[in-house]
Computed example of a mutant assay.
Amino acid sequence: MAEKVRELMTPHPVTLAPDASLAAAAKQMRAKDIGDVLVVGGDGRLRGIVTDRDIIVRVLAEERDVSSTTIGEICSPDLAVIGPDDDSDQAVQMMRQRAVRRIPVVDRGELVGVLSLGDMAIERDPRSALADISVAHENI
């Protein structure tokens, strides 16, 4: 039987407002050793997700102004979300269909976590290369 999403997700994901700077997002990613921040509006509504890859592809590669571009401008707004009581197999299927590595976890409209491929790898196959990478300390 598949685990529930709540058993695998990372609770209390890092969130920033849409008008936050790219630097603020990058600093949070570095400080928390994560690859994404969730974009949440003043109304508490999930607006999108920004990944480290988004910053590279949507800002640097397009030669956008790093100092004036906000995370709200580059976030992926069309998010797949999943509930904490959904089966992890459903999350895997959703990730495959949407070609994403992370899915926000929402309970009754409230953001409660984020589920990543790394989270699932650690639980499902702790000896896999992906699990090793997911728990490894950063290389500095």
Rank of each mutant, 00 (worst) to 15 (best):
125 D>M: 07
5 V>P: 00
16 L>H: 07
68 S>N: 11
36 D>V: 03
139 N>K: 12
77 P>G: 11
22 L>C: 03
44 G>V: 09
129 A>Y: 12
126 P>M: 11
117 L>F: 05
57 V>Y: 09
94 M>E: 13
104 P>A: 06
54 D>W: 02
70 T>F: 09
8 L>G: 00
74 I>H: 00
135 V>R: 15
112 V>S: 08
116 S>L: 05
135 V>M: 15
114 V>Y: 01
18 P>Q: 09
8 L>T: 00
61 A>K: 11
80 A>V: 15
57 V>A: 11
123 E>Q: 14
3 E>V: 03
41 G>S: 08
120 M>I: 13
11 P>A: 13
109 G>R: 06
78 D>L: 12
64 R>S: 07
45 R>I: 08
30 R>F: 09
51 T>P: 02
60 L>A: 15
89 D>N: 14
139 N>A: 13
41 G>C: 03
63 E>W: 07
16 L>N: 04
138 E>V: 10
113 G>S: 10
12 H>R: 14
135 V>Q: 15
135 V>E: 15
35 G>K: 01
113 G>K: 00
89 D>R: 12
16 L>G: 03
2 A>E: 12
66 V>H: 07
79 L>R: 09
121 A>F: 00
83 G>C: 11
77 P>T: 15
106 V>Q: 04
116 S>M: 05
90 Q>E: 15
55 I>A: 01
101 R>H: 12
26 A>I: 09
39 V>I: 14
121 A>C: 05
10 T>Y: 03
48 G>F: 02
65 D>T: 06
107 D>M: 06
18 P>C: 10
54 D>V: 04
97 Q>N: 12
111 L>K: 04
29 M>D: 06
117 L>I: 15
57 V>H: 08
83 G>R: 10
90 Q>T: 15
4 K>Y: 13
101 R>W: 05
126 P>E: 11
101 R>V: 08
41 G>W: 03
60 L>G: 08
104 P>G: 06
41 G>K: 02
84 P>K: 06
79 L>M: 13
114 V>K: 00
106 V>P: 02
53 R>H: 05
37 V>W: 00
11 P>I: 07
9 M>Y: 04
111 L>D: 05
100 V>N: 04
36 D>L: 06
128 S>F: 01
31 A>P: 00
52 D>Q: 08
85 D>M: 11
89 D>V: 09
50 V>S: 01
75 C>M: 15
70 T>C: 10
85 D>N: 13
129 A>K: 11
123 E>K: 15
14 V>N: 03
126 P>V: 11
28 Q>H: 10
33 D>F: 07
41 G>R: 01
103 I>Q: 01
76 S>F: 05
37 V>Q: 00
95 M>K: 05
72 G>H: 11
124 R>K: 13
134 S>A: 15
137 H>T: 11
118 G>F: 03
6 R>Y: 14
59 V>K: 05
27 K>C: 08
117 L>N: 02
84 P>H: 07
128 S>H: 04
101 R>G: 13
139 N>M: 12
82 I>M: 07
68 S>P: 04
99 A>D: 14
102 R>F: 06
48 G>A: 07
23 A>G: 04
74 I>D: 00
50 V>F: 04
